[in-house]
Design a protein around this nucleic acid. Structure first.
Length: 414
DNA sequence: CATGTCACG
DNA sequence: ACGTACGTGACATGA
């Protein structure tokens, strides 16, 4: 049986050999510029004070800006703002999406948003990371877990080094504190569009496979296909929408979800999805087959045979069943990507063991990215070897591409 | 310990 | 008619 062979592969070629690799990465640790983070903490503290005063002026009373409960009382009872969304327990939500919307008409939500963002950075990162520096090694050592996630991804705890900020400038300052020691360079190598490439491989869709084989900008190519244009005619807005469709497909999203994400009418979102499935019929077929496989067998599989069991796939509760269907769509893509990078990590580790000690160390894995510190004189050689090993970790019907960046810190390496 | 929120891919 | 994108971990609050 093919599936049984695959189950053997996922254990023998991926999980078991990865154990000592993870141990070495945990032992290596990463160097942190604690002074820089302490400085950032100070700056944030000053701004939090200002924001607290501002909130007091608007609300007319003192309250804890970190307390969703107190904030609900101020916004929705005292000030009478409209309730746009409720939490699972039925109370009015004050999450980022809601506050963004309310900020268009009222002053307080913008203050809360800025406060929340800064408070998060301070408590979770700029205050916490320096405290996690090991006294003997002078480095931060995470723990990687191989048997936590449903899809086969790793997870990272104490501290979690897989959710270090990157999406805005203030957050990126934290990445700038992840540094290489004297004489070394941070090398970050990440897979380009790995989950969409896996979707192309698993579905075998001609147009999608073709786009990747020709090295096209996949979001622009999708926009061109859906709109019936040449790729040169695609505007940035069209590309943005196509990107949302591509991401949504990986998550098993509905037309309603797409309309919310893009802020467009539901009918329009449905129209986009219809057009997409007309242009990429192989993807449509693959999605249908995956749902059917999940329903018939009660599980789905990654390329290497990792299984995700879906007990809710037969649920009479429509919401639970739909959620299970989305997980069934997503797991083969997310899980196959996890299998592939794990194989790459084993290969990179084997190669590093053959090198002169001190040449390079693998420090972190962030789902589609490997971060190493490399003796600066050898970074060209290590970069090309790591890219080659990552790109060769699986043979798909489309090219697997790994991009690299380097610098004195993790931010520069991107 | 549950809840709400938010950092990442 | 209804609710709606997958997978994680950490923090502050408050019962």
């Amino acid at each position: 049986m093919q599936a049984d062979e695959n189950l053997k592969i996922v254990f023998e070629q991926v999980e078991m050999p990865l154990v000592p690799v993870l141990s070495r990465m945990e032992r290596n640790g990463v160097l942190i510029d604690s002074m820089k983070l302490a400085q950032q903490s100070q700056e944030i503290a000053v701004r939090l004070d200002e924001l607290e005063r501002k909130a007091f002026d608007i609300a007319g009373e003192e309250f804890n800006l970190s307390s969703p409960k107190q904030l609900q009382a101020i916004l929705f009872e005292k000030m009478g703002l409209p309730v746009l969304k409720k939490t699972p327990s039925g109370t009015p939500s004050t999450n980022e999406e809601v506050l963004q919307e309310l900020a268009l008409d009222y002053p307080l939500p913008a203050v809360i948003l800025e406060y929340r963002g800064l408070a998060k950075l301070k408590s979770t990162y700029t205050d916490k990371l320096p405290k996690m520096v090991n006294g003997e090694t002078g480095r931060v050592h995470t723990s990687y877990h191989q048997a936590v996630t449903a899809t086969g991804r790793l997870s990272s705890t104490d501290p979690n080094l897989q959710n270090i900020p990157v999406r805005n400038d203030e957050g990126r300052r934290i990445r700038q504190a992840f540094i290489a020691p004297e004489g070394y360079t941070i090398l970050a190598v990440d897979y380009s569009q790995i989950e969409l490439r896996i979707m192309a491989h698993l579905s075998g869709d001609d147009a999608l496979v073709d786009a990747f084989r020709h090295g096209k900008d996949i979001h622009a190519a999708t926009a061109a296909e859906v709109m019936g244009l040449d790729i040169s005619e695609v505007t940035s807005e069209m590309r943005r929408r196509a990107k949302a469709i591509n991401f949504g497909l990986i998550y098993g999203m509905s037309a309603f979800g797409l309309s919310r994400q893009l802020g467009i009418p539901r009918g329009e979102a449905q129209e986009y999805m219809n057009l997409y499935f007309e242009r990429y019929p192989g993807v449509k077929r693959y999605m249908e087959e995956t749902r059917q496989q999940a329903s018939e067998m009660g599980y789905v599989e990654t390329l290497c045979g990792r299984r995700l069991h879906l007990p809710d796939i037969k649920s009479s509760n429509g919401m639970r069943r739909k959620a299970a269907e989305r997980a069934a769509i997503n797991a083969p893509m997310q899980g196959t990507a996890a299998d592939i990078i794990k194989r790459a990590m084993v290969l990179v580790d084997q190669w590093l063991l053959q090198q002169e000690p001190g040449t390079a160390r693998m420090l972190m894995q962030v789902h589609d990215e490997l971060v190493l510190e490399v003796k600066s004189s050898l970074v060209d050689k290590v970069e090309s070897e790591v890219r080659k090993l990552m790109e060769g970790a699986a043979l798909l019907s489309v090219p697997l591409i790994a991009d690299a960046g380097r610098g004195e810190n993790w931010d520069q390496a991107h």
